[in-house]
Amino acid sequence: MKWTGLPAKIWMSLFVLFPFVWLLFLSVQKNSYINQSGPYGFSQFKRALNPPFSGIIVNSLVYSFAASVCVIGIAIPIVRYISQLPPRKRTLWILLCAIPLGLNFVVRIYAWFVLIRPEGLLTLILEYLGINSPLASTRAGVFMSMVYGYLPFAFLPLYTVFERLDPSQTEAASDLGAGTLQRWRYIILPAVVPGVVASFIFIFVPMLGEYLIPKMIGGGLVSSLGTQIESQFLGSTKPNWPFGAALSLCLLVCASAVLFIAVKLLPKGHSGQKSTWSILQIQ
């Protein structure tokens, strides 16, 4: 039994850890060929952190952040509603929330794409309401699609914390004269923060590197960190692997930084950090 852990550990080191080291090595090469080694330097990073690429990185960060906040904002009332239902109804509703996770992501985004195209149903409804702006190939459309695509991922981590809320605490608070705002501020929010942070991490990190949505919805007109990385590696015109590696590392650093800040924001002393990890582990 002593050696049985080895194959898996070797496999993961070989295919997850080692590639990172190699990406690091690749990103400090000045030339754009994969098989050439040296001369070395930070020119790829310099290029990535100057316009126009710095703008793309900042854009991706801002849009992913805003979209994550939207997703969580949409999901919280739903989860709050479900967690207050009687147990049997609860299971049914939460199942309804979980099923979209099993629907293929490409298919789901394509199905959404059909609706927001110029002749699509949603565009027609918006036109009827007097909003005459194209959604496909625009940043607004990509943003909406991000929210649509990632909404299902928010439900379960949020539900685990909302389910644990003790209704007698809010009851006591309102008996003592606390309004809705005060109940949320002092009782509900502190208790659900770990779940919110966990779902934020779940949504924000993949969103930051999202390639499929900007490419499909944006139709090549909206560039994000994901589409830039893709074109550096697979693009038909002048692929540049070392530069792509530098961009990927920037993405990784941004994701880890946000993750770090999110975990730091958790209430200390209170078991916030621990429970966020346990929620992340469960999901």
């Binding site: 080191s13 997850v16 850890l17 080692f18 590639p19 990190v205 993949p206 994901g226 990927s248 993405l251």
Partner: peptide, 23 residues
Amino acid sequence: LMSLPLFIPEIVLSIGLLVMIVR
């Protein structure tokens, strides 16, 4: 280490694999 693929952006994981396999 085993749950690392769940936490890093999939695009970075894919590129790591691509580089590893091609190179």
